[in-house]
Design a protein around this nucleic acid. Structure first.
Length: 594
RNA sequence: GCUCGGUUCGUAUAACGGUUAGUACUCAAGAUUCUCAAUCUUGCAAUAGGAGUUCGAUUCUCCUACCGAGUACCA
């Protein structure tokens, strides 16, 4: 019978999980699920000096957000997760809690002649390294040097016994064999060979904190946890021969897992791996979730807080260095599980492309139902001071022609149905839910500043609260470069021509079908069918005395405060005739008759 | 320096040793529209360089260049 597939993601809680780490976790997860096996999270906190509080919870929460759920491991509260699918008790999953396990294995290696005790102090070794560097050489603790260093290979048995008992800063080192070619197979890279003479005697266990180093802990835990495949970052490839040798030394060669080393995620431009700096500089997150450094209080933005959907983030990451073998690009997690294959994983590092990440989000946004998006949008609306009410059967709807479709601009109250209709209209042009507000704020608030009219150049709509975590609106550039040109504040005269006051007056009268008065700015209600409005507008703008191009822009500016936006008829069908009159009146009143 | 990996349009990638080197993102142009988007159409754009094997090389081998990782009592 085939062994049950068991893979693990083994992060070190020294900071927030980088998106490259999420990708590694994802590939592990996809592999495990495809084989119907287990995905395990093991916390590798054997470096007591670099521990960062909150990092572990962050990592778990981030994976959780992505839908990468462990079958075994710890949850965000640090509790052990062990699902029904787990056949064996492998807890605990935090290496600091497994401390008692490791020493015996390290001693076992010493007894078998695969390792030895080393008593050289860290300072002494640092000095050696510095010396070697000065002589343009590299100091290595290996077969060439260990005979001249303080260890159980050079000291007398008595001395060793004495030092082991009286001192606490010794280590156990692996005794790297001399002149052996280690032959390895990597699931992604194929056959790799390394001569052990180029390798050094790595520390396996430290007496000082009674903890193993990565190499020992890793092999022991992978063995004990019955890991079948190790899928990890490329930075581990150079230590693979050591790991092979450790399996051999322990006599676990026949159950040794298979290895797959993933290439790194690279920065979008230039050379080098993706770092936090690149994100800050180019305006994209490198972390799945927002992270606040507990010591420096420095905040790093996250994909979640930037408005990315976890499905989009996961899909984007999956496609960075892997392809399904066909031209599909959009995958649900289930589809990824089906399609995933390690031999389609790219060997070379993949440069991250922030534009593609946005594209994925846009695609996922479009796949969401209007109801889902509305639910996500409402909290943002509330953040802008809007109130959204659920029941359409109240005073708001009295007199509304659309059942349950209403908005009270004066009091900033809108029905859910109204919001849904807005979402339905703007979702095609948005990348993030937060874009809805940028695109259609004027369907919720009356513009009071008008760029084109010079009331306050550049102000447009009331600005939203500044959010340093959000990228600058790319449309702002477009707006500045092209649209503003004919509408500069100083061009008011060009824009607001002699007949425009009359035009506003007539149009408003026409639209509202009532007297044009600025006195009635009370509660607004949607009052015309869109088709009627369209016909009305159409009919009106074709009048010869008002050339369409110019007056439409004036009209748009009056209604939205900006020179771009939704169709006039769409806008009217939302804001209704009273709000229409109010906005036209506001502008006409301010600029007056020429 | 040494060791190990890697190299197809700007980016992510596709291509039994035989294709006009395909697709997506970005960018540009056009169509459409009351504007801006969206959408549709079109376009720009690549096998790092050099040898070799072969009838034929993006694909296999070697060399060079460049990129990356490792070279800790860190993971």
């Amino acid at each position: 019978m085939e062994k049950r597939t068991r893979v693990r993601f083994a992060p070190s809680p020294t900071g927030p999980l980088h998106m490259g780490g999420v990708r590694t976790a994802l590939y592990n997860y996809l592999y495990a699920k495809q084989k119907g096996g287990d995905f395990i999270i093991r916390i590798e906190d054997t470096d007591s000096h670099r521990f960062v509080p909150g990092a572990e919870a962050y990592i778990i929460e981030a994976l959780n957000w992505c839908g990468i759920i462990p079958d075994e491991g710890v949850d965000e509260n640090g509790k052990v997760v062990e699902t029904a699918s787990a056949r064996h008790p492998h807890a605990p999953y935090r290496q600091s809690q497994r401390r008692p396990i490791y020493r015996q294995y390290a001693e076992q290696l010493v007894a078998a002649g695969w390792a030895y005790y080393a008593f050289d102090s860290a300072e002494e070794l640092d000095r050696r390294r510095a010396e070697a560097e000065a002589a343009k050489e590299t100091f290595m603790y290996n077969s060439a040097t260990r005979g001249a260093l303080r260890n159980s290979l050079t000291l007398s048995a008595e001395e060793v016994k004495n030092l082991l008992e009286t001192t606490t800063d010794w280590t156990i080192r692996f005794k790297m064999p001399v002149g052996r070619i280690v032959e390895m197979e990597d699931l992604i890279r194929g056959h790799v060979e390394v001569n052990t003479d180029t390798l050094d005697d790595k520390v396996l266990w430290k007496r000082a904190d009674e903890l193993p180093t990565y190499h020992l802990a890793n092999i022991v835990d992978d063995h004990l946890m019955e890991i079948t495949e190790v899928i990890r970052g490329e930075e581990w490839l150079p230590s693979l021969p050591l790991h092979y040798l450790l399996y051999e030394a322990f006599g676990w060669k026949d159950t040794m897992p298979r290895f797959a080393h993933l290439s790194l995620l690279l920065k979008p431009v230039g050379n080098g791996k993706l770092s936090k700096r690149d994100g800050d500089k180019m305006g994209f997150p490198v972390f799945p979730l927002r992270w606040k450094n507990p010591i420096t209080e420095e905040v790093s933005r996250g994909y979640r807080e930037d408005g990315y959907f976890p499905e989009a983030f996961v899909n984007m990451l999956a496609m960075l260095g892997w392809n399904p073998g066909d031209e599909r690009e959009l995958f649900t997690m289930e589809e990824l599980v089906q399609a995933f294959s390690l031999d389609k994983v790219q060997k070379a590092g993949a440069k991250f492309n922030p534009d593609k990440a946005k594209w994925y989000n846009k695609e996922y946004l479009r796949m969401k139902t209007t109801q889902e998006l509305t639910a996500l949008f409402i909290p943002l609306l509330e953040g802008h001071g809007m109130k959204v009410v659920d029941c359409p059967c109240n005073a708001l709807t009295a007199g509304a022609r659309f059942e349950g479709f209403g908005a009270d601009f004066k009091n900033h109250i809108f029905t859910r149905e109204y919001v849904e209709a807005v979402v339905e209209l703007v979702k095609e042009r948005a990348t993030f839910v937060a874009d809805f507000w940028d695109i259609a704020a004027y369907l919720f608030i009356s513009p009071e500043e008008f760029e084109a009219f010079g009331v306050k150049a550049g102000a447009g709509l009331p600005s939203k609260p500044a959010d340093p975590n959000r990228p600058a609106d790319p449309r702002a550039k477009v707006f500045d470069d092209s649209l503003t040109a004919p509408f500069l504040a100083k061009d008011v005269d060009k824009f607001w021509k002699e007949d425009h006051y009359e035009y506003c007056f007539e149009l408003t009268q026409y639209i509202s079908g009532a007297a044009f008065g600025f006195d009635d700015l009370d509660t607004y209600r949607g009052s015309m069918e869109k088709e009627q409005l369209e016909a009305a507008i159409e009919q009106y703008i074709k009048k010869e005395e008002y050339p369409m191009g110019k007056v439409m822009n004036t009209l748009r500016m009056a209604l939205t405060g900006a020179a771009s936006g939704l169709g006039i008829a769409d806008i009217l069908s939302f804001i209704g005739r009273k709000e229409f009159a109010r906005r036209m009146g506001y502008v006409a009143d301010r600029l007056g008759r020429k």
